[in-house]
Amino acid sequence: MSYLVMEVHPAYAVVLDQEGRFYKVVNFHYQVGQRVEQVMPLRQPQPLRRPLRRLAPLAAAACICLVLLGGYRFHYLTYGVLRIQINPDVELSISRSERVVGLEGINEDGRQLVDGYDYRGKSRDTAVEELVERAIALGYLSDGDTISISVSSQDDDWQQQEEQLVRQQLQDRYGDTVVISIGPRPAAPPSEQSQVVIPVVPSGTEDQNQNDDGNDDDDEDDQDDGRDNEQVPEDPSVLVPGTVSEPGRQETNTQTDDRDDDDDRDDDGHDDDDDQDDWNSNDGHDDDGEDD
């Protein structure tokens, strides 16, 4: 390609190529009318990237929106539902950040308990504690009664963790006066029936559970009865599925309940000890035999 130099300036030259294009090129001491084989064209000035700059606030706004949305999800959307059954049956919707975002009474007493209670902006801890306090104040909950907690969420880990936290909280606060159980109370499938039983001194002032208290004089008997009464409706449902572990566990529960009033855990520990003793003795016997 040959270029005809049309005009020269100190810094550049205008050339015409053979296809009719005019260029500004670097002027390597060209002269008008000269033909050159190679040129170094000037570069087009690139406009400031204003569009991007104009988009910048938009992008920032989008980021903020995302963050806010995340925060909203974290703080205001229901992540799991905590159900508390005393006698009043209430359901708390809880967000990921453990804020109460909804409160509903399931049965008549529950509605009464919830009525007029402002849950908004309260944490799960506070709300649970205040609700239980309310239940006590309204006379729904008395010593020796059972609080059943159940948490349902799509996140299994979160669900278990939450159940443990609530149980721990109530245990610490009311552990020596009421029974706290995990899992829904009525005939629903007994998923996790780990129960915490705490011996309590009967005060006998409440109307709610007066039947039990009135019938029995003994603490232990009272405890047993309470438990038996509770487990009566569950027994058939447990037996029907015919799982191996559940009935066994149930049996040990009932057996140990008769014997002592400690926690399930203690019961299990006791059984385990027995088993281990057996194993040990067996081993010893075998060893002896080999030695012989």
Partner: peptide
């Protein structure tokens, strides 16, 4: 050559 290029760059 460099001077020519630099002048053109200045113009650019």
């Amino acid at each position: 050559d460099e001077l020519s290029i630099a002048m053109a760059a200045f113009y650019e």
